[in-house]
Design a protein around this nucleic acid. Structure first.
Lengths: 208, 208
DNA sequence: GCCCTGACTAAGCGCTTGCTCAGCATGGTG
DNA sequence: CACCATGCTGAGCAAGCGCTTAGTCAGGGC
């Protein structure tokens, strides 16, 4: 692992290459604070101090505390959707692609657990317009997983009684990783991903 | 369903039969507010108003806002542990008991989703002593599930490569239900429980 | 040398927060 | 009848909140 999750996210932000480094430090501090204490328990003073600045400096780079949350949530969801799309559209049969999808989805939620927590558990604090955008991305993720399961059923590789319930279970398993995973966990993100990939394939009645 | 989840929890509280009805209304209002907005975004005025009282009345029945959270969290965890113990110690082989456990664990997290949200996602806001108690209950729940999986493996009914990872996955699936389930969900808690029971048995490589 | 610009700070404003306190109504008891 | 405990309210305090404002300062263009 050569870069932290927030560094992965940063280049995907609009105008990232021209933004001062301070904006990056603020975003990083915000992710960590929101993940640890939640959005409402985090103060603008917390974020600014962690980024080595006075509270007023925050407002030069971001419109508001909520704008920071919106930026994190949008970028995090976009990254997750990209990851899911890439795995679902890759080489191999449905089962093989599903295994890769779960491996990477799970590993991401372990590795980027701070971003993952903000993305999945602070939705209610988003301003309405940001929430609308993010809800659309979440729907896309679920649809992508559902489509892959359906493909697997059609190909005779999976056997499930309810596709939507199964898709829920698959994404649910991965998302919840960001709640309980800590750096003190005994498994690496990669190991966990591989084991969850195995479990999910069995859950879907895979014959492969 | 003849009673709401908070009514289920109330009788288990110390001295519940002598407490005034106002204390009950406050607890109910607190559960709903904490579940919807989170602990920190909820004000004592929100809770008191929802219970039909002035803010000051809250402090006659509870020591603080955090004491309300602690009471909810303790009672919710105790109820979940009791549910898990009952299912794990019931009749039948390991697979049969695991199916019942998952059915009931999942259905509880759907039906009592407001309590479930507070229980699982507001841990960080608990005072330290309440957190210690609750953490012990959570460990007991995980141990109960792990023990049942081990029993199943020993009996040749399950086949898993890592018991702890499998136990995590089982509880994880159920817990996450309280995050996404809404009263508008297409499945009833009972249906969802049965489907999840099926998925989990397959996940554990059940031969039954 | 001069001024402009962008990044930043010290101070603090207006408001909300968790919580307190003096006092009021009510209903059971002697 | 007086008395008092219980449950509650209206008013408000101290602290902390998100955010603003006036002003500082280094560095680059002319």
């Amino acid at each position: 692992m050569t870069s932290t999750p927030i560094a992965d996210l940063w280049p995907t932000l609009p105008g990232a290459d021209t933004r001062p480094e301070a904006a990056y430090r603020l975003l990083q501090a915000a992710v960590e604070s929101f993940a640890e204490r939640g959005f409402h328990a985090t103060t603008t003073r917390d974020i600014a101090t962690a980024a080595g600045m006075s509270p007023a400096a925050l407002y030069i780079h971001y419109e508001s505390k909520a704008a920071l949350l919106a930026e994190i949530s949008r970028a995090g969801h976009a990254a997750t959707l990209a990851l899911v799309r890439e795995a679902a559209a890759g080489d191999g049969g449905p089962a093989e692609r599903m295994r890769r999808l779960v491996e990477q989805f799970t590993a991401w939620h372990a590795r980027a657990r701070t971003v993952g927590r903000v993305v999945n558990y602070e939705l209610h604090a988003l301003p309405e317009d940001a929430y609308t955008q993010v809800a659309a991305l979440r729907l896309d993720i679920e649809r992508e997983v559902s489509a892959l399961i359906e493909e697997g059923v059609a190909a005779g590789e999976f056997e499930v009684s309810e596709v939507r319930t199964a898709a829920r279970a698959v994404t649910s398993l991965g998302i919840d990783v960001s709640r309980w995973y800590t750096e003190r966990s005994s498994e690496t993100p990669g190991e966990l991903g591989r084991r969850y990939g195995e479990l999910v394939l069995r859950m879907l009645g895979s014959r492969v």
